[in-house]
Amino acid sequence: MAPSDDSAAAAADPVSHPAFAALYDRCMPDRFLVAPHREYLAADLSGRVLDLGAGDGATFPYVAEASDAATIEYHAVEPDPNMRRRAAETARETDLDVHLRDARGESLPYADDAFDAVLSGLVFCTIADPDAALDEVARVLQPDGEFRFLEHVRADGWRASGQELLNPVWKRAAGGCNLTRETVARFVGHDAFAVEEVERVALGIFPASPMHRGRLRRTRDAVGSR
């Protein structure tokens, strides 16, 4: 599926949110709120792994704790230079050797079938063209490779209406985060993936809720034929 002219233009814009990056740890106390779900993303990894939109490297310590360094080759992409600097610092503080690159989800600098697993932790809300990024995830995953995610999605009823009203301001203040995306529906509806599990989790407060986590398996069929 080709991106629209508008989404292609958005994807070409530089990604830089210095104020949000500086305040992120205060706004999002990761260890306090998200630890069980980062552990879910990091559990029992092996082979080549890609951390999509690594942010400040919040998932790195969990991977270092949960995985044998001898059995994992860990890659990460982050387009925001402010977050990427923080991710590099986090990588240095862990025992995990991280290959960190400046790249967007819509155009990953890796060969087809390059990874055994791709991780996405609160990422697809900020990607300019999420459909193109999901096609890229499918492309770089090996057949039977696993896509693990934790994402917030559009709510129902009055909460959805509230998200619509708040989204323009929220997006500017929260590093490009969109409140109204049907992210899980996008994931499970993609022809390149089979659903292993999807569950709603007790995490997040309005307007960045509800949240879901899950695992998808890359099928052996052709990628991106939607």
Rank of each mutant, 00 (worst) to 15 (best):
L108M: 10
P81S: 06
L100M: 09
A132H: 03
E196Q: 15
L23T: 10
F206A: 08
F115Y: 07
K171P: 06
D51A: 04
E136S: 03
G214L: 00
D97H: 08
E136D: 12
V49E: 03
S16W: 08
G162P: 01
E39D: 05
E146N: 08
G57L: 00
P109E: 05
D95G: 12
F60D: 00
A117E: 13
V188L: 05
A117H: 14
H99G: 02
V118A: 05
R215W: 07
L52Q: 01
G189Y: 04
L96R: 04
R217Y: 13
M28V: 12
T126G: 07
G176W: 15
V123P: 01
V198E: 10
D129K: 12
E106W: 02
V201A: 05
S4A: 07
D68T: 03
I72H: 02
H190V: 04
V123Q: 00
A12F: 06
P143R: 08
Y24D: 00
D131K: 10
R186D: 12
D97A: 11
V15N: 12
A174F: 15
A128C: 11
A114K: 09
A12K: 15
D135L: 13
R38I: 00
P81I: 02
D156P: 07
R148W: 06
A58L: 06
A208L: 04
D191V: 08
A138R: 13
V201S: 03
V49Q: 01
P3R: 10
A111I: 00
M211I: 10
R38H: 11
R101C: 05
P14C: 04
R154L: 15
E164H: 09
A66Q: 15
V118R: 06
P61I: 07
P14S: 03
E199F: 09
P3K: 03
V118H: 02
N167P: 10
E65C: 10
Y110H: 00
A133R: 11
D13N: 13
H99I: 04
F115E: 07
D5N: 14
A2I: 08
C125E: 13
R148K: 10
V137S: 12
I72R: 01
N82A: 13
W158R: 14
F60M: 03
H75M: 01
A8E: 15
V140N: 13
F32G: 01
T71F: 02
G47F: 06
D44H: 13
L23D: 15
A222I: 10
F149P: 03
A11E: 07
L141T: 14
Y110G: 01
P130T: 04
G105Q: 02
F147E: 03
Q163M: 11
R101A: 13
D97Y: 09
L108P: 11
